[in-house]
Design a protein around this nucleic acid. Structure first.
Lengths: 219, 219
DNA sequence: AACAATCTTGACTGGATGGTCAACTCTGGT
DNA sequence: ACCAGAGTTGACCATCCAGTCAAGATTGTT
């Protein structure tokens, strides 16, 4: 039901420390995602990782330290995705790639996205500094970039800030609200084709919404 | 620091049962929103409502019953907002009104939106039946409506489903991620003007994105 | 084989949590 | 003034939780 790892058997001692820590982090991510920090229990994480709770504490000092590492790992992934918003590309390319990448992340890192959402909803007690520094800087450079596009007449005048929030919201929605989306999809996960269609629709609406023509768009 | 009520003093016995229950529900909503179901404690809710914990149990049998009522209240509000997506209006009017109403809800019912988000992220253990019946029916009628608009050539062909998700995601983001938005706004809540601008930008991008001209749009 | 370092784990602890209860107070009706 | 029912509350309980610990198992090294 739950095979994250498969090369060395979970109980086996041939697993390296790194592998075990990764297995714990993966399970912790899922549990924190589904129940929030307060609702998650070390016992449940231990069970899912197929370890005794005491052993879990051997690898991660405390629940908070474990949570911190989960959140930090997610932020790293987010940062990498953020790079696909290339400052050198044309508006069409930069935005399409960024949106597509974020949609992909929502599919492959559903739980990470949920942990992030939970953390922010709780007022970002752990990652406030990331918001204030890294995220803020990134946001500001992109706002300036979009403003330059607007000044150059490439993009219809919109406030870049609300545009960025729209992209974040729309793409992350597919991870955070996956359960709702799947319920409305007859209880089934979205197919490859549906993910492609959703990505294209999101790209299409946003690009056209700011006066761009999506690449490879018909009539 | 925390005056939800003010006409009759919190401790006063001149408060009606209804008033007390509403005060509890308001506080519970906030606590559940910020910490999720598992992370919330009855003690904290009681403290915020300025009641002894035992008294809280006099009004609400159990934590789960209280949570259920909070979620049901939110769903009711959501349903009312859903009505502003009028099936009789033009695409421009129906969509603009719906988006504007949802943005307004994100501003006035931030905590309700967060509780909903939490519930869905946890797999909707309490409200699965709402998702499967009420939400599904509503969604399907709107999808058919949008398909008729498309068939009539009023709206550019897009898959209505992804459009609806986009509207939900974008508007609810302003409630669920309010903390992030405020951090990026220099730590201040959005002003009236900013809410208006955000609403207009969201409306503008979505309407133009599907080939409509927002009402009262310039050039 | 001997040994030290690393890893594993069942049993435990102190504190928090949801929920209960019996005693108490208040209010409106007579 | 009296009473019954509604509302209030401190003290209490069983359970669960994060975290500890010491005894034991495994591993790499010589």
């Amino acid at each position: 039901m739950d095979e994250t790892q498969s090369a060395p058997k979970p109980g086996s001692r041939s697993e390296s420390r790194e592998e075990i820590e990764r297995r714990i982090l993966d399970c912790a991510e899922r549990v924190f995602a589904e129940r929030g920090f307060g609702g998650a229990t070390m016992q449940l994480i231990a069970d899912q990782a197929e370890l005794p709770k005491a052993n879990l504490h051997y690898y991660f000092e405390s629940k908070e330290k474990l949570y911190r590492q989960v959140v930090e790992r997610i932020f790293t992934i987010w940062l990498e995705a953020a790079d696909s918003f290339e400052t050198s590309a044309s508006p069409e390319v930069a935005l399409s790639r960024y949106i597509a990448r974020k949609m992909e992340l929502s599919r492959t890192h559903r739980y990470g996205s949920k942990v992030w959402a939970n953390e922010v909803m709780q007022g970002a007690p752990i990652i406030q500094d990331y918001l204030e520094v890294t995220l803020r800087d990134w946001t500001e450079t992109r706002i300036e970039l979009i403003e330059r596009w607007i000044a150059a007449g490439l993009v219809r005048p919109v406030e870049p800030r609300w545009l960025l929030y729209m992209i974040w919201a729309t793409t992350q929605h597919y991870a955070d609200f996956a359960h709702q989306i799947e319920t409305l999809n007859g209880g089934r996960a979205l197919s490859d084709a549906q993910w492609r269609a959703a990505t294209e629709t999101v790209c299409g609406i946003i690009l056209r919404g700011i006066g761009l023509q999506p690449e490879g768009a018909g009539a």
